[in-house]
Computed example of a mutant assay.
Amino acid sequence: MMIFRALTQFALAASLLFFALAAGAAEVIRFGYLELADDPRYDERKAFFRTLSRPLGAPFAGAEVALRESRFVGQAIGVSFELVRARGADARALVAELDKLHAEGVRHFLIDAPGKVVAEVAAATRGRELLLFNVSAPDDALRQAQCQAHLYHTIPNHSMQTDALAQFLVAKKWRKVLLLQGPRDDDRLIGSAFENSARRLGLKIVDKKDFVLGNDPRQRELGNVGLLTAGDDHDVVFVADSDGEFARSVPYDTVRPRPVVGAEGLVAEAWHWAWSRHGAPQLVSRFDKQAGRHMGSADWAAWVAVKAVVEAVVRTGNAPFDKRVAYLGGEEITIDGFKGNRLYFRDWDRQLRQPLLLATHNAVIERAPIQGFLHQTNNLDTLGFDRRDSRCKP
């Protein structure tokens, strides 16, 4: 008995030594995480009202969760994964940080920055052996005129979001829409995306009115929800408000009892903490434990960007960079985003195909594409820019 126990202990010690040596010899694949030093989108002074159109926090925690989940799968092929966080004041500073990491062998970068910064970084790194994953900029232009072959998008763009909401409105037969649009450039981008969605799906925008949030008495009528929603009858109010501070005052303050969509009321997002199918509660629980808050769309986008690269590394047996890129951008890859569909990237603009969750503050109401909205090859391509709509020429 003592001999058996000694042999068992020896075998256990040998196994531990083997795994320790294997871990020590494992190749390390590092992810760079690029972000602005003082990103106004995460300003704590504006976070107190937590509107549906604003992120719940910086999405770095999403990448951390994905990295933790990938530890064991990496061991199977002798690979470990690391995450390096780098900040810069502007696009030029982020490119400088990228250059340093690239010189150290980093080839995969998540970038968390506004659209203009993402566009500058992507243009400055064109033609280099690296991949950028946009995890928080929904600008349509990044998938159209400003697209780059090495710039992938895991966050949905404005047109995907407005298409999802437009499908919902058509399904509900709420076809007459009042569009309220804010003064910011991002507000106009959202409003334009919805107008395109409405035109394609047969919705009628009965009126389009600009709003201004402020205390100037000369512009009182531009900030009064009652005055803005009076006039022509409509079935629903769409609010294009990238900041969200005005939008939160619209529900229950309209002249007529009308649903509100867009920035408040009902939103179209990549992720919502109340999604309860396809293993989502387990992911939500892991993220809550890591970040101490609910998981939002940008968090999910950072998480799935890391998971996509890990999937490519594992399935190709950690092949050279060019072969991993080919697999990552091909149709054979299967990315599980816990939303019920096989996810993979469009080859024309590098946008991740994905369903969107139509949600209120505390519930997911529907998942888009809505049943009945069909596409000749993939129903997920009813959201956003189809191949025939694409102006991407990287």
Score class of each variant (00 low, 15 high):
Ala312Phe: 05
Ala96Leu: 14
Arg87Gln: 07
Glu104Pro: 02
Glu69Gln: 06
Arg92Cys: 05
Lys289Met: 14
Asn215Pro: 03
Leu142Ser: 01
Glu120Asp: 08
Tyr252Pro: 05
His153Gln: 10
Asp187Ile: 10
Val212Gly: 02
Ala240Gln: 05
Leu352Met: 13
Ala47Thr: 07
Phe109Glu: 02
Ile29Asp: 00
Gly292Trp: 14
Ala193Glu: 02
Asp43Thr: 04
Val255Asn: 08
Val170Gly: 13
Ser197Gln: 09
Val28Leu: 15
Val239Glu: 05
Trp275Glu: 10
Pro40Thr: 00
Val304Asp: 10
Asn215Gly: 04
Leu56Asn: 01
Leu180Gln: 00
Leu34His: 01
Thr154Gln: 01
Trp300Asn: 03
Ala268Pro: 02
Val267Asp: 04
Arg175Trp: 09
Ser285Ala: 15
Glu195Ile: 12
Ala270Lys: 12
Val225Ile: 14
Ala319Tyr: 08
Ala312Trp: 14
Ile77Cys: 01
Ile370His: 05
Asp43Leu: 04
Gln161Asn: 00
Arg41Leu: 15
Ala240Glu: 00
Ile365Leu: 15
Arg391Ser: 12
Arg350Glu: 05
Asp381Glu: 15
His234Gly: 03
Lys116Cys: 09
Tyr344Met: 13
Arg346Tyr: 09
Asn134Thr: 06
Leu380Arg: 06
Gly262Ser: 04
Val117Gln: 07
Val118Pro: 03
Leu201Met: 12
Arg143Pro: 10
Asp216Met: 08
Arg220Val: 13
Val237Phe: 04
His108Pro: 07
Phe81Lys: 00
Phe238Val: 08
Arg199Cys: 08
Ile205Gln: 10
Ala37Pro: 11
Gly202Pro: 06
Ala149Ile: 11
Ile370Phe: 07
Gly202Ala: 13
Ser276Thr: 05
Glu35Trp: 09
Met160His: 08
Pro251Ser: 03
Arg324Gln: 14
Leu12Met: 14
Ala291Thr: 01
Val260Arg: 07
Ala302Asn: 06
Phe81Leu: 03
Pro114Asn: 09
Tyr344Glu: 12
Leu165Glu: 04
Gln351Ala: 13
Ala166Ile: 09
Thr162Ala: 07
Arg184Cys: 11
Asp163Cys: 04
Gly202Ser: 06
Ala291Arg: 04
Asp299His: 03
Ile29Val: 15
Ala141His: 09
Gly226Trp: 07
Glu104Leu: 02
Thr316Ala: 02
Asp381Pro: 08
Ala14Val: 11
Ala113Glu: 11
Gly340Gln: 11
His294Leu: 15
Arg126Ala: 13
Val118Asp: 06
Thr125Gln: 02
Leu357Phe: 07
Pro40Leu: 00
Val314Pro: 01
Phe211Arg: 00
